[in-house]
Amino acid sequence: MVSKSIKRGIAYDLSTVNDLDAIADGISWYYNWGAAPNAGLPYSLSAGRGVDYIPMLWNENFHEASVLRFFKANPGIKYMLVLNEPTIGGQAYTEPERAAGLWPRFENIARQAGVSIVGPQLTWGTMPGYQAPADWMDAFIAAYAAANQGNAPQIDFLGFHWYDYGLAGQLDLLARFGKPFWVTEFANAHSQQDGAQIDSLEKQKTQMSEMVALCERREDVFRYAWFTGRVNPDPYFQRLFEGDGELSALGRHYISLPY
């Protein structure tokens, strides 16, 4: 019998066994935006508690041989997150044509390591002409096809980040790409003073409950990860941990939600 959601995870650099023990009964995976887990929490420790670490190649600056060595040393890892928020300055800002040139490097690693590609991690951005994630995707797919004999890029799952109301509608907008989703960052950080602002723990708990229920219900959502474990200041009441190995009220709520 499954004792926890296979979809549920966190976007946070888990670094201690105490934190792992506090949350392991309610999550099945996590990532830390890096290509390897924190030195304080080797992959074997988290995997032994039923929590998979998933590497991310955040942008184009990675060393293929090192990444392949990590995958071959940890054959239990079957997925690779790639390209974090390519439409946002300060993140992995990557024009569609540049991403098309980068993608064969991801595909080469995926082929050699036998892992699936999860990405890019889309969201609404700041790139002129490509603020909408679907517009960026259309241009990226076209640029890849033009450079690769009309072929489509390998995208096994599409990543998405969302920090407001309306997650269902956003996923519906991207459903035409025909890929299952990993919602690799989500919370509600609605700040507009319009009566719907998230300004209390109870409001965030309500939003978490609704979004988790949506992700659990939708067959096209394969994985999802709450952002984040700890943050200071925390104006939207998002943190899942307090002290080392101590879940916050929201953290206890997250791992208690039905699946």
Rank of each mutant, 00 (worst) to 15 (best):
D244Q: 13
N148F: 02
F237C: 05
S44F: 12
T126A: 08
F227A: 04
Q193L: 13
A113D: 11
E219Q: 14
M1V: 10
W29K: 03
E210C: 00
D138A: 12
L68H: 06
W33I: 05
M208T: 04
Q170Y: 03
D164S: 15
N232Y: 10
D19Q: 08
A225K: 02
Y144Q: 09
G169P: 00
Y254Q: 08
S66L: 07
G40V: 06
K7I: 06
A147E: 13
G125K: 13
H253C: 14
D156W: 15
A35G: 07
E85C: 10
F106K: 11
R98V: 13
L214G: 01
G50H: 09
M56P: 03
Y79K: 11
S46A: 14
V82C: 03
M208P: 00
M211N: 09
Y144F: 15
E64V: 07
F227Q: 03
I54K: 05
G9W: 13
E95C: 00
F71R: 03
F237R: 02
P55M: 11
R111K: 14
H63Y: 03
Y236N: 12
L247T: 11
G169A: 04
I6C: 03
D135A: 14
S66I: 06
D244S: 15
S191W: 15
A100L: 00
T228K: 06
G150C: 02
F181M: 04
S66M: 02
D138I: 11
H63T: 02
E95G: 05
A36C: 00
K179E: 08
P133I: 10
T123C: 12
T206C: 05
G169T: 00
V115F: 10
R8E: 12
A134M: 11
N61K: 06
Y30H: 15
A113T: 11
L167E: 09
L102W: 15
E64P: 00
Y165H: 14
D25W: 01
V183G: 05
A47E: 15
L20R: 04
L83P: 01
A146D: 14
P86M: 09
G9Y: 12
H190S: 06
P96T: 05
S248W: 14
R98S: 08
P180T: 05
G40C: 03
V183D: 09
R252C: 06
G90T: 02
Y163L: 09
F157C: 01
